[in-house]
Amino acid sequence: MPKNVPHYPRPPISLIESDIPNWGVDIYIGGSTGAADVQLLREHNITTVLNCAVNLDIDYVDLQDEQRTDIHRNFGWGPIRYYKIGLIDGPGNPESMVLAGYHLMRSSLIQDVPDKPSYKVRQKGNILVHCRGGRSRSVTIVALFLHLEWPEKFPTLDSAIAHIRDKRQLHPDEWFETPKPMLVELAHRAVKMETLLRQAGFNKDALNQDL
């Protein structure tokens, strides 16, 4: 494996795909600076943000809860719907967590937000998936999503990764770690897990109706 390979510049966020079939949203990938730029999110009609990194937190709170006092960290409401799956950028993750990232991304798009005062962001918009650099963990989850949700265009996981590398402007010298090989392997195993679930008759869309 190459050593001391420089990290090449890339945009704060990158459009990966537009108007995803069955979802009608655009998918973006970004790093921490892009995810933390609320004005940039608004410009791209991003209302949902999925953070893939266990070692990165972003404070979106712009309207504090009335219960907050000086002894508390900020909590309240932000300008986007914020979800998190805590992946390590390297070894240490179970494949079930990568599969959970796919289901969390998918579920965030399905979720029907109630019309209640405590739910400040109800409008449907585009989604940003990010990690610290927007080059490994986020790429893994979005590639898994594209392959499983749009197999006609992305018949393999590797084809989805190649597409993201191009759209995210990841330099070929970085490809050995964009994404990290162990995350790619976990994603392949997650595909097999999801395939087995579907073969067993698990219908994720009908499940709640049957309970």
Rank of each mutant, 00 (worst) to 15 (best):
P179D: 10
L146N: 04
V54C: 13
D158G: 05
D26L: 05
H103C: 12
E66I: 04
L207I: 10
T178K: 11
Y82I: 03
C52D: 05
L63S: 10
E17K: 09
H72K: 11
T195E: 15
P6L: 14
F154D: 00
N22T: 10
R10Q: 14
L211T: 08
N22K: 15
R137N: 03
I58Q: 10
M97E: 07
G101E: 04
R198I: 09
E177P: 02
L109N: 04
V38T: 09
P79F: 08
P117D: 12
D205K: 14
N74A: 03
S136E: 09
K180M: 04
A206N: 05
I46Q: 03
L196W: 01
G133R: 08
V61N: 02
P117W: 13
V49Q: 03
D112T: 04
Y83N: 08
R198N: 08
N22Y: 14
I58E: 03
S136C: 11
L87Y: 12
C52K: 00
K204T: 01
V54G: 09
P181K: 00
I110C: 09
S14H: 10
H44W: 01
I29P: 00
Q209G: 08
A206S: 05
L104Q: 12
K204I: 02
K153S: 03
Q123P: 00
R73T: 10
P9T: 09
I88P: 00
D26Y: 06
E95S: 12
D62K: 04
I85Y: 10
L144G: 02
A206G: 03
V139M: 15
T33M: 15
N4S: 01
G101D: 08
H7Q: 12
K124P: 02
W77I: 15
V121F: 13
D89F: 08
S138Y: 02
G86L: 01
G133T: 06
I13A: 03
I85M: 15
L104A: 13
D158Q: 05
D19W: 12
H72E: 09
L170F: 06
D57F: 15
P117Q: 13
Q199P: 06
Q64W: 07
K153V: 00
S14V: 13
H72T: 08
T195N: 11
L146W: 03
R189Y: 11
R168L: 03
D26F: 01
F145L: 06
R68P: 06
L56G: 05
S96T: 14
L40C: 06
H7A: 15
S96I: 14
V113Y: 08
V113A: 09
N126A: 07
Q64M: 05
T178L: 07
H103T: 11
D173F: 08
T69W: 02
G24K: 14
Q111N: 10
G34Q: 00
R135H: 05
I161H: 01
M97K: 13
K84R: 10
E185S: 14
V38H: 06
R73S: 14
